[in-house]
Design a protein around this nucleic acid. Structure first.
Lengths: 164, 164
DNA sequence: TGCAATTTCTTTAAACTTCAAGCAATTGGC
DNA sequence: GCCAATTGCTTGAAGTTTAAAGAAATTGCA
């Protein structure tokens, strides 16, 4: 243990252990929950998590969304979305329509079937999440929301600085 | 807005919106950081995140680990680890040795090369993480650690209840 | 207008991932 | 000892994911 002149514990100048442990805990937590949600979606609805996530994005809007929008919101690559959408159109959950003003653009929508199935899944999903976080008090949740917002901002700042 | 008899805002009995928003924020945060780490690992070391994660597990021990151990610690499937290890043995980063007491078991170790390369990457990685969380105060970090531990416990409780 | 830059999307290859099935080896109860 | 159950790992199929390259369309600027 290193002590400063007033006999208080201090960190080594380059010790970033606490941040690393925080990151590992964040990752563990997310992986755990994600795995749980993935299992339940497969088990109860025979749907994969990526498909559910994509439909969740589309359910937020009534008039459709482009592939690029989806890609940005889901934080996955463009090509990834292309394949996912293709399979969901194939299964009758989505609907694609080429823009009339820009022929590169495709507007993607949930079909009636897609929206109905998604709503059913989403209702269950919300209950699962509530149960998964069931031990947290409202205050815990507020605090976590606040701190995660701060962490997100910090990460964005760092990412931006690297790319710049 | 719904008010109770003492004119205090209350939630609908089945409104789990706050938990859902918390989950989405947690996921966004993790995805963002994971993507950033992935990019940097590829850019600076031309290594993938799963390979780095696997080596990180092995670096913690001196005498090797079985595939099952790796699978549990990384929270990924058994088959997944089989493939990852195969490629890392191929590239000379890992070393496999069959157990003498149980011929099903393989002990996996970092080779000298593997450990050296990992240590170099890990040092950089730790700095990246410190920068990514750079806007958080020590108190923020402590609080996040605490709340995430609580969330993890809650998720484990929920997962266990489902499987039971 | 002309055309370089940008944007949108698709395609490809390689890697990663899960799940389920299967094989080989060990264990535990009888 | 016998053998059913379990454990450790691999395999195969389907799907997800990224990165990189490319095709098609639009935009913006000289």
């Amino acid at each position: 243990m290193i002590l400063d002149s007033e006999t208080k514990a201090v960190e080594l100048p380059d010790d970033h252990g606490t941040e690393l442990r925080l990151w590992l805990r964040l990752l563990t937590c997310t992986t755990l929950i994600e795995g749980e949600v993935r299992s339940r979606l497969r088990e109860k609805f025979d749907v994969t998590l990526p498909r559910f996530d994509l439909m969740a994005q589309l359910d937020k809007v009534s008039d459709g969304m482009t592939l690029s929008d989806l890609s940005k919101r889901m934080m996955v690559s463009n090509g990834n979305v292309t394949g996912l959408v293709e399979r969901l159109v194939e299964s009758g959950h989505l609907d694609r329509r080429t823009s009339e003003t820009d022929r590169r653009v495709q507007f993607i929508r949930l079909t009636k079937l897609g929206r109905a199935e998604f709503r059913k899944m989403a209702a269950e999903h919300e209950k699962w999440i509530a149960d998964i976080f069931g031990d947290l008090s409202p205050k815990d949740i507020r605090e976590l929301m606040r701190l995660l917002a701060k962490a997100k901002g910090s990460a964005q700042r760092s990412a931006k600085a690297r790319t710049a």
